[in-house]
Simulated scan of single mutants.
Amino acid sequence: MPSKDKSIIPLMETLYSNFTNTETTIADFFIHNNKKQDFSAESISRKLFVSKASLSRFAQKCGFKGYREFVYRYEQTFNEEIQNVGKLKKNVLSTYQKLLDKSYTLTDEAQLKRISEMLLKYKKVYVYGIGSSGIVAMEFKIRFMRLGLNVESVVDAHIMQMNSVLIDEDTLVIGFTVSGKTKIVLNSLKEAKLRKAKTIIITSNNDFSLHDFCDEIVLIAVTKNLAIGNVISPQFPMLVVVDILYSHFLNSNYNEKASFLNDTLSNIEFELESELE
């Protein structure tokens, strides 16, 4: 992908909930800015009525050594062209492309490979999700079950609570929540952690407090700052991550998993043919 796909805007979006009021002002400016200009500390501090020290702290919270490094990355990946989309079809497809670009930026290949190895290690795997995230949890189960993984999706709040008694140190629990604020999913992950399970959350919200009870935080792209984000299926960025994770899992001991997949698909076809006879 071209270098502009490595925009730092998705990183700012995932960290948004951790920013102070001043840092939110700074983030909003860089996220919504659509033209090249003087991004020096002197210029931006005057424009936003913030101190240079605030700009420096903001840059460091984003993972940079200082504001100068942050601006260098921002200018390096800045896209001067403003999209002016008239037709709905082109608008929707353009938004999906932006989501893919953001997913490319946020995807941590080493992390997903590490998680695929966890899937092989633990005896029980539970995938939690409510609403749209629940649909992804069910899709996760179907996809990975075909590769021989002992996985169960839990998409009901009451069953999620009851399921906590089945969790122990041999369990891996994965929670899907786009906002990172779905209480039943967060509480279930906390309970799982207390029972010494391995826990993973897949979310767009890189809230630092999630590290207290999640061993891995897998970040997904968000649409809140895209022009028509409200018409894009919220499952899409989560499914992108699931697909990449699926590829890593399939690639580990490929021949065995491919054989298992062919067997399950053949069995499904046989059952369908039997029903049609």
Rank of each mutant, 00 (worst) to 15 (best):
M1T: 12
S7V: 02
P10F: 08
M12K: 00
M12A: 07
T14G: 12
Y16D: 01
F19K: 00
N21C: 05
F30W: 06
I31Y: 01
N33P: 02
N34I: 07
K36Q: 13
Q37H: 07
F39G: 03
S40T: 10
A41I: 06
F49N: 11
F49L: 15
V50A: 09
S51P: 03
S54A: 14
S56W: 06
G63A: 02
F64T: 02
V71E: 01
Q76I: 08
Q76G: 14
T77C: 05
F78M: 07
N79K: 09
Q83E: 14
N84V: 12
G86T: 06
G86H: 04
N91Y: 12
L93A: 10
T95A: 04
T95P: 10
K98Q: 11
D101N: 10
Y104K: 03
T107G: 08
T107Q: 08
A110M: 13
K113I: 14
K113Q: 15
L120M: 11
K123A: 11
Y126K: 03
Y128P: 05
Y128N: 05
G131T: 05
G131W: 05
I135R: 07
I142R: 13
R143D: 09
F144L: 14
R146H: 15
G148K: 10
L149T: 11
N150G: 10
V154L: 14
V154G: 07
H158E: 12
H158W: 09
I159P: 03
M160N: 02
M162I: 12
V165M: 10
L166Q: 06
E169K: 09
E169Q: 06
D170Q: 10
D170I: 11
L172N: 02
I174M: 05
G180Q: 00
K181T: 11
V185H: 01
N187A: 09
L189M: 04
K190S: 01
R195L: 07
T199S: 08
T203C: 04
T203F: 00
N205Q: 04
F208R: 09
H211E: 12
H211T: 11
C214D: 04
E216L: 08
I217H: 10
A221K: 01
T223M: 06
N225Q: 08
A227C: 07
G229N: 03
I232F: 02
S233K: 09
V240M: 15
I244A: 11
L245C: 08
Y246M: 10
S247R: 11
H248E: 15
F249R: 05
F249P: 12
Y254E: 14
N255M: 09
E256V: 11
K257R: 15
S259L: 06
N262W: 09
D263P: 00
L265F: 06
E271M: 10
S274Y: 09
E275K: 14
E277K: 13
E277A: 09
